[in-house]
Design a protein around this nucleic acid. Sequence first.
DNA 1: CCGTCGTCGGAAACCGGTTTTCCATGGGCA
DNA 2: TGCCCATGGAAAACCGGTTTCCGACGACGG
Lengths: 360, 360
Amino acid sequence: MENRFPTTARATIADVAAYAGVAKSTVSKYLSDGNYYVSPATREKIRAAIEHLDYQPSAFAQGLSKRRTNTIGVMVASIANPFYPELVAGVEKVIEAAGYTMLLGSSGQSRQKEADLVDALIKQRVEGVVVTSATMHDREVARLVEAGVDVVVASRELQGELIADTVVVDNRRGGYLAAQHLRDHGHTTATLVTGPLDVVAFQHRAEGFRAVYGEGKGTVLMLSNSDMTTAVDPVADLLAGPERPSAVLAASDTIALGVMTAATTQHLGIPRDLAVIGFDNIWVSQVPNVGLATIEGHAHRVGTVAAERLVDRITSRRAAPFGPPPPPERVVINADLVRRASCGCSSAHTVTTRRGPSSN
Amino acid sequence: MENRFPTTARATIADVAAYAGVAKSTVSKYLSDGNYYVSPATREKIRAAIEHLDYQPSAFAQGLSKRRTNTIGVMVASIANPFYPELVAGVEKVIEAAGYTMLLGSSGQSRQKEADLVDALIKQRVEGVVVTSATMHDREVARLVEAGVDVVVASRELQGELIADTVVVDNRRGGYLAAQHLRDHGHTTATLVTGPLDVVAFQHRAEGFRAVYGEGKGTVLMLSNSDMTTAVDPVADLLAGPERPSAVLAASDTIALGVMTAATTQHLGIPRDLAVIGFDNIWVSQVPNVGLATIEGHAHRVGTVAAERLVDRITSRRAAPFGPPPPPERVVINADLVRRASCGCSSAHTVTTRRGPSSN
DNA sequence: CCGTCGTCGGAAACCGGTTTTCCATGGGCA
DNA sequence: TGCCCATGGAAAACCGGTTTCCGACGACGG
């Protein structure tokens, strides 16, 4: 212990072998635990050596030699976007339980960073990747697939051909449910405030909206981005304009929060002057003061389901390396409406355990 | 090529060398870019081979051979806790710019998982670790340090000796500022709702609170956990009880949201019946409907500063492997008060243009 | 004209593991 | 007692890179 080397001088398997007075291979067999027989005496010597030297095998050397890395990559647009942490938490739970290490990277919004991240993951020889970045180009997904890594796309739709497993919430139906609910509240017209429509998820949500509020009934305000601050100014303009809507469907909760912010600056009450429904049910929305009605996005569940599929795919590929992989599937998770104050349902449905009758 | 390996059959450097008709070492020299001279003709042959074979060097083999992994570990209690993603985003930005790969793991709240995660990071031979998990035991930090990895502790105080760089917001002063502000609003007594006081950060915040509201003036309600739902019931009991406070200082924004939730169930108006100040300034707090006054926790900045220090430490250690490392330092970042509606400052609706959720 | 030097690239050793091969025992059985 | 086979462990090859060492070859100066 005292004669430690300054730099990361960790003990190697050779050190352990020398200290225990056996061969490297014997130590390795001892560690592999089960497949080989090592006599109790030798076993004990090795155990003591490992403990004394505080030995921990190098994942690199193991990965190199075993030709598997036990690593799964997770690509996210931005970790700071409140939707993703929940999803990632689900992914991590499953991945870790299956014995994998998680490599998390955010692709930002630039094509270059996406490509770089894909390169980095390939270079790290990840065994699989969960892609959740909504803005990521199909081409990058394809590169991963071509590189031979298993890919599951979570909470994001591929634009073209289904080249990888996809786990998504039923966006069309979600948009439809939300819009229908607004109409049930008596709003004959409504506005959809959405992120860029080349994102397939937004497109589907818009289609659901359009199924209720067709041409002439519904208008669409498209933003360049789906974060909260981007929404504030354009929506404030909308609300100050001549054709102020009485109801807004926001294509994400972050956008909805921007809408609420804009409404507040215009001194409009919610839901009195403006009904709002969001999409995703991020954690914030349940806070009573926010009380944002929304479509449940099941982020955590999407994460776990995606990760489970990925792990399955990896294990089955390892079991039958030469057989053709099963064709990619698209898993759809039900979307359902979460009623809260912002849509006009006074029976605000929150997490609070005791619920007093709200009297406003 | 026909004798492909089943799994992830990527080209190796030997394949490239064979295709280009040169030796492995020459390819390696070509790739190392700068240190060795390779003639233009050879260079071109290798370039073509790499392109044709879609070669990408294995990070494992490189790590093994170069004895550096270019990987930095990040330990977080729970990625779903809204405070951490912002911090992690800051860390990631710096780390990635410096050419490192991020290995993110959450330690959960169990000692076992913490220890496992530390083992995993050591096994991965990370060059450094950013520890942000507030609940993590000093012992685990010590294990990392003893294992020879550089450690920076972010947004968390060590309980004992300063064995690693620490980047932290001035919690004592933050607690003091918040409490003082409540008193300036005329609250002669107040209650602190805090997470477990064996977490040093909470302890310091409590000290700041105590400096204003000493015995007889202030009471303390300690929770077992700092998340929102944990706070709701105990605080509801408090508010329904005989000694309902007029002001609450919550030791974190998540607790504050729980306090607000409890207040809502009791039909108490904020700040009319109850003034609330939180701590951290998580992203949610700025939403007008929340309007939570708080102490700015500078999560993103703490993350970047911590990561910068870590990268510095790693590079300097690499430059002088045998010299003793510089002694650990404690970097304190100013805490300042963010006034919003919940404390009684009516100038609430200033939508502070802080970073949006998905800003990078 | 020859020795020397510099340039380029090949051969081989090494990083830290795993896995295969192989050999020395020793015990069981005839 | 002799033979065979199972068993435990050592030796060596290998994973995919990097790095060191060395040799061939051409140019150049004395």
